[in-house]
């Protein structure tokens, strides 16, 4: 696998197409989720990743099948970028038996064991040490695989985040921590929550190299992640990436909420001007792009049709899986 440091310049046309496809695909899936949501066919609270796709896509583009990805309830992008099943994700949101969690997880807990997407958690920050546990297992087994774990700026306020950083650094665990800093925890801005915004400095005191990407540039994210991943594969310890980003929709649910008063549409506009989906779309040849876009639409319709036509879980499923055999 290519783990070399790469920027847009060193990427070839196929790379750009692949990254564009992944970005566009996630964007369109989330838009479709939002579109369908008011029909009540989705039986699960949705925390959309619209606007934040470049972080998952940029990091995961450099991961292989054996690498592990962990995320939060706002984890659709990471799940999809890692190659987990779209039909199973939609079916999960529909509460169907064919869902990736057999209808027992919902939108906030997507899992894909075969693709090494560890289950997402909806208690903020709780998946961070669990990801470290996976990294510990990889290290004990002398694997060259690594873990990438995504979380929001709220999660870094939890004590368990610092406990995890310390342990990961102490044991040189192969885990890349990625903070998707969208500036809000629900409706509360950073200014009301952080004593200082020097997050990377805080993390660095644990002996963890920490980098910040302020403009959401997918190539910068990919390039920095690539450096961290290469270091970890070579036996180095954890890395930390803080990516500033913006959540275009409301915290939970399908809509925009710029009329609520806690943020301004003008803040969004800066990010729309810098939208990585559009940016990469512009870098792909028109015919190829049209082809990609069509394929994405077909895949999405097929996935929603699959979810629609899938069976509901049998009542006995309420009681199965409380304990493992």
């Amino acid at each position: 696998m290519d783990v070399a440091i790469s920027s847009a310049d060193t990427l070839d046309g196929t790379d750009i197409q692949r990254i564009y496809r992944s970005l566009r695909r996630i964007r369109r899936i989330e838009e479709e989720v939002a579109r369908v949501y008011p029909t009540d066919r989705i039986k699960s609270p949705v925390h959309l990743s619209i606007g934040q796709e470049a972080i998952s896509v940029g990091v995961i583009d450099l991961l292989g099948a054996e690498d592990v990805v962990g995320g939060s309830y706002r984890g659709h992008a990471a799940y999809l970028a890692k190659g987990a099943s779209l039909p199973a994700m939609v079916a999960e949101m529909y509460g169907k038996a064919t869902g990736c969690n057999a209808g027992k997880g919902g939108s906030m807990h997507l899992i894909a064991a075969a693709q090494n997407v560890i289950g997402a958690s909806a208690v903020v920050g709780t998946h961070i040490p669990v990801a470290c546990g996976h990294a510990l297992a990889l290290k004990r087994r002398r694997s060259s695989a690594v873990v990438a774990v995504f979380f929001g700026d709220g999660a870094v306020e939890e004590g368990v985040f610092y406990e995890s950083l310390n342990f990961a650094s102490l044991h040189k665990l192969p885990v890349l921590f990625i903070c998707e800093n969208n500036g809000f925890a629900i409706h509360e801005p950073l200014a009301k929550r952080w004593a200082t915004d020097r997050l990377c400095e805080r993390v660095a005191t644990f002996g963890i190299p920490a980098e910040r990407v302020a403009d959401g540039d997918v190539f910068k994210i990919r390039s920095l992640a690539g450096k961290f991943i290469a270091d970890m594969r070579a036996g180095g310890g954890p890395g930390f990436l803080e990516c500033l980003t913006y959540r275009w929709r409301e915290h939970v649910g399908p809509s925009e909420d710029y009329d609520a008063g806690y943020r301004q549409r003008s803040d969004l506009e800066k990010w729309i001007a810098n939208d990585q989906v559009a940016r990469l779309g512009g870098m792909v040849d028109g015919t190829v792009r049209a082809q990609i876009d069509t394929e994405i639409e077909q895949e999405i319709s097929a996935a929603f049709a699959f979810a629609e036509s899938s069976p509901i879980p049998e009542t006995k499923e309420l009681y199965t899986h409380v304990f493992a055999d």
């Binding site: 470290c132 996976h134 297992a137 342990f167 102490l170």
Partner: peptide, 20 residues
């Protein structure tokens, strides 16, 4: 371990999920 019972429990859980 460090005095980090919360994270260490999470580490145990993650390692267990990974087959340990």
């Amino acid at each position: 371990t460090p005095l980090s019972e919360d994270a260490m429990t999470g580490v145990a859980i993650g390692a267990a999920m990974a087959g340990m």
